[in-house]
């Protein structure tokens, strides 16, 4: 037994030496954990083969109300880099997760902590931080900047910088990935702007304060929100007011998260608009952020272009996903 033990020990030592002799680049991948599939896609595009990316959420959840699961703790505990959307988007679970995961490398202040929102100019920053303005108030501003390609360029820069910080050996590859991402964004933005050009200035209704970055990026107009205050369900009188405003402003589209589909449908029917169920980012079943944006832009273009408003169908498709939009991918590319 002792002989076997010594041989085993020598074998393990030899294996360890052999592992050490392997070039770093051949076996080391940076383990990246992201809070959203959007950030996972972004990181994969920048990091390429040098990163292994694990999104914690599927994109179907309300990012503000995620329950920490055992796999979250295990992944973050082992991670080299943690990328969050920031601006309080994940305030209900990320601080506790980082605290309990006990991985100093990815805690705030660690080299592997990446707040993708750094440098982004937040919109809808409340002048008065009071719950009177709504229970879901975001003191640092609206966190849904992933709907704006300009902001995603800045987020990409933050991710690149963090990857370089953690794995400087692959600096060049990360910079190349970043450059490619920027070029892709430029290409897509040109197409998206062209597609939405006929819709400039047109109004739509959202269920929650989520689409302001998208509206700003593509010169669209948010006429009203289905929630009277962020996080508060609307009263009947408030909804009547919304419908009246929507009619007056000739609103063509009501967008809502899946759980507000019924409400969006009701309002859309009342004001002659189209209701669409849209997520606020890509999901793990989508191909990535560009494809999500392709489909989202196509949805808006289809509902808001003057031709569509005049003769287009007025179908309500609760439960339809952006990717399920007919011709969505083709229209966007």
């Amino acid at each position: 037994m002792a002989f076997i033990g010594k041989r085993l020990l020598r074998g393990l030592a030899g294996l360890a030496l052999a592992m050490a002799a392997l070039p770093f680049s051949l076996r080391a991948q940076v383990d990246v954990v992201t809070t959203t599939p959007d950030l996972a896609d972004l990181t994969r595009r920048i990091g390429g083969e040098h990163v292994r990316v694990h999104p914690l959420t599927t994109g179907n959840e309300d990012l503000h109300l995620v329950t920490v699961r055992p796999s979250f703790l295990v992944k973050v505990h082992r991670a080299d880099v943690f990328v969050q959307q920031g601006l309080d988007a994940e305030h209900a679970w990320v601080p506790a997760l980082l605290d309990k995961a006990k991985n100093r490398a990815v805690r705030f202040g660690g080299a592997g902590f990446c707040d993708a929102s750094l440098g982004i100019t937040p919109m809808q920053v409340p002048a008065r931080v009071t719950r009177e303005a709504g229970p879901d108030l975001h003191p640092r501003g609206n966190p849904h900047y992933n709907l704006d390609p300009r902001c995603m360029r800045i987020a990409a820069r933050n991710v690149r910088d963090c990857l370089v910080r953690v794995d400087p050996q692959h600096r060049k590859a990360f910079e190349q990935g970043f450059e490619r991402f920027l070029e892709d964004v430029d290409d897509h933005v040109a197409r998206w702007r062209k597609l939405l050009e006929p819709c400039r200035g047109r109004g739509f209704i959202e269920n929650h304060m989520s689409w302001v970055y998208f509206a700003d990026a593509f010169d669209l107009r948010i006429v009203a929100a289905l929630e009277a205050r962020p996080g508060l369900p609307p009263s009947a009188s408030y909804l009547a007011e919304v419908i009246e405003v929507a009619k007056r402003e000739h609103v063509g589209l009501v967008v809502a998260r899946p759980r507000f589909a019924e409400l969006a449908e009701r309002v859309a029917r009342a004001c002659g608009a189209e209701a669409r169920v849209l997520q606020l980012g890509s999901t793990t079943s989508d191909k990535g952020w560009f494809e999500f944006m392709d489909a989202t832009v196509a949805t808006f273009a289809r509902a808001l272009t003057p031709e569509a408003r005049r003769g287009g169908e007025r179908g309500v498709e609760p439960g339809a996903k952006p990717g399920a939009e007919p011709d969505a991918g083709r229209r966007g590319t």
Binding site: T121, M123, P126, A133, V212, A215, I222, A224, R229, V245
Partner: peptide, 21 residues
Amino acid sequence: SPSQGAGQGQGAPGIALPGST
């Protein structure tokens, strides 16, 4: 009224942008 509070680049009623961004 909803039309005044939730326009583009604005917040819901009662929400405005601060002095610092």
